[in-house]
Structure formats: C-alpha cells, structure tokens
Amino acid sequence: MAVPTPPAAQHDRGLPAPPAGLKAWLTSPAPASRTQARLGRFYRGWRGFVRNPAAMAGFVIVLLLLVVAASADLIATHSPTVAGDLRTERLLPPGGEFWLGTDDQARDIWSRIVHGSRVTLVVVLLVSVISMPVGLAVGTVSGYAGGVVDAVLMRITDIFLAFPRLVLALAFVAALGPGIENAIIAIAITAWPPYARLARAEALQLRGADFIAAAKLQGASPLRIVAVHIVPMCMPSVIVRVTLDMAGVILIAAGLGFLGLGAQPPQPEWGAMVASGRRFLIDQWWVAAMPGAAIFIVSLGFNLLGDGLRDVLDPKAAER
C-alpha cells in the first residue's frame, strides 16, 4: 500500500502503513504486527463494553469508589472519627456545613462514608485474595486426583455450601471474636466453595486432555501438572465468578457490621453506620439512609461491572 506513513505506525518495524487515524489503525482487518492485533482485540472488547450502558455505569461506579477511597483524606470535609460539638452538631439534617448531615455522635456522615469506602474495598480485595486461591486449589486437586480425594474434598465443600453464607460467616465471627479482620476471614471461609466447584468442573474436563497426557509423558508429577497446566486454564472462569461475587461480599460485610460483628466503632463501616442510625430512622432518616444508599450503589456497581465483564470475556456470550 502506498499510503503515507502516519506517526502512529512508525514503531511498526516498517511494515505496511495503516490508514491514518488511531481508530482505523486499531480496527484494521489486517494488523501488521502482533502488538497491533492484540491492541485491536482489546479495543474491540472495550467498544463492546462501552456499548453496554449498564456495564459502563457499573464501571463508572467502581472507578468512582476507587477514586474516593484513594483520595479520602482530600474529599472528606471532617474527621470520620472525631466527634463535633455534641450540643449543637448532633443529628443535623443534610445542609451546607454537613453535606449529608451528622449522626448521633455529631460526626459528619459524608466524611464517614468516604472513609468507609476504604474499609469496603479492603474487605472485597482481601476476601478475593484469600478465597480464590483456596477455591482454586481445592477444586483443581479434587478434579484432577479424582477417587477418594475428590469425594472427601467435595463433601467438605458440600458441607460449607449447605449453610446460608451470612449465617455461616456469623458463626465464624462469633467464634473468632468481632472485628474487621475476623469478619474478612469469616467471609473468605464461606466464599471459596463455589470457586472450588467451578474449578473442579473445569479440571474434570481437562484431566483427559492430550496435553495433560503429554505432560505426564515428560515425567511431570501430579502436583506440577495441577499447578502448571490445570490452574491457568481454570483461572478465567473463576476470576469472572469472583467479580460477580464481590457485590455479595460487600453485602455480607455490611450485614456483619450491622449486627455489630464486623468493624468496631469508631471505625467508619457502612453496615455499622446503618445499624447506629436505626434508632433515629423515623425522625432523622439520613443517619441510616445515607450509608444504606452507599451500600446499595456500590454493590449494584460491582454487579453491573461483573455482568459486563462476563459478556466481554466470554466469546460465546458475545456472539449472541
């Protein structure tokens, strides 16, 4: 092609020049390099994602949450824990000085919600980081080993699945003692069984694959086969599932906080804030409603994002 080389293509090892414009370069049906092809695929996935308004809304909400959590100290107008003047600043309605009103300790609700986003994010991240490897390990070992190992591990999984998650988490927190760390551990303990099930189903399919036989032929030990060949294949579906579960994790964390078993006062945790506002629900509705709205919006955001990600990441769903 005799098109003049646009600046974007000059890194491109002097291969045929794409038509002018970054968009045309990204959507070119004949990518000139692997990098271009890869970026193009990413771009098409992104376009599909943007076209889905619900997913985009979820993405924006989660992005906002991240920004708010990162810059909580700048955004918050007051201290989240230090009380104001108890005589004049208690239970004030939303207004100019206190944007979302104040609670019964004369603390600014807006600042507490902003700081509470950090607690929520920490809970979500830590629960994912703890429960995903556990679920993956149990599921892949169970699926690959089969026989007695499979039976034992899956019955343990069944026992965990037999309880409602919040009830089981409650029992664990009650045993471990209240506190945000213990709440995270308790939620993680109740979160892994679905991942184990998912990973096991994939491992069962892979177990008979030829490339697993090839790995055996090279003398790889069962542990090595699971770690090197099976776990990476199970990752995508488990990651999508974890994203979809994040909203549930937020709700359970808030539920534990509401029951007084999660974050302890004066830590600003949304569930605990709703619980403390319960007493003033009729006359000072904003004390409970504001953190409640935060829980609602953020879990909705994670749900929408998870759905959108699944549509983009799963090529079978995208064709429809």
């Binding site: 694959a209 030829d210 490339f211 036989a213 090839a214 790995a215 032929l217 060949h229």
Partner: peptide, 9 residues
C-alpha cells in the same frame, strides 16, 4: 502423540 492441536497446552 497424534494431534498437536490437542497435545500442546
């Protein structure tokens, strides 16, 4: 093995 499509990861 027979088919490289299936015998490579």
């Amino acid at each position: 093995m027979q088919d490289p499509k299936y015998s490579l990861n």
